[in-house]
């Protein structure tokens, strides 16, 4: 299996090296997105993620295939967490492994940038006195 696609309640950031490791890979690149405490100087208490899971898994799978087609990669991982996440929690992991590092670096950036544009997952920023769906309004 050259791709791992998951939507989970809790992201395990420790398993990703084993998942991407491959005898033909000399480079592994991983991006982890996490909850930041401040947005525009406002303190975030937590983020809440929800998804349209059947469609999100399909889009993530399509995204992995696009990366595998674009670059010579041995493994691809795309995982996203849903539910309530607190400051410093990991919410998304994307990664790729390849013979040399440049393919993994490029693929990794493509994976996270495209995921943010196409995968049906929504995040609500919870502040002390209000909550806001991110990107909903111009």
């Amino acid at each position: 299996m050259n791709k791992i696609i998951e939507i989970v309640q809790e992201l395990d950031t420790h398993s990703v090296y084993q998942e991407l490791s491959h005898p033909n890979s000399g480079g592994i690149c991983v991006f982890v997105g996490s909850v930041r405490e401040f947005t525009n100087n406002e303190q975030v208490v937590a983020l809440e993620f929800e998804t349209y899971e059947s469609m999100a898994l399909k889009e993530m799978d399509r995204l992995a295939d696009a990366a595998l087609e674009k670059w010579k990669l041995n493994k691809v991982v795309i995982k996203h967490a849903v539910g309530r996440k607190e400051v410093q929690d990991a919410v998304v992991i994307v990664g790729a492994s390849s013979a040399h590092r440049s393919e993994s670096f490029e693929a990794c950036r493509f994976l996270i940038d495209t995921l943010k544009r196409t995968v049906p997952i929504w995040k609500k920023e919870m502040f002390k006195n209000k909550s806001v769906w991110v990107s909903a309004h111009p």
Partner: peptide, 10 residues
């Protein structure tokens, strides 16, 4: 049929 507002994963 699903209504998909602006996505904001990641």
């Amino acid at each position: 049929v699903a209504i998909i507002p602006p996505v904001s994963g990641g």
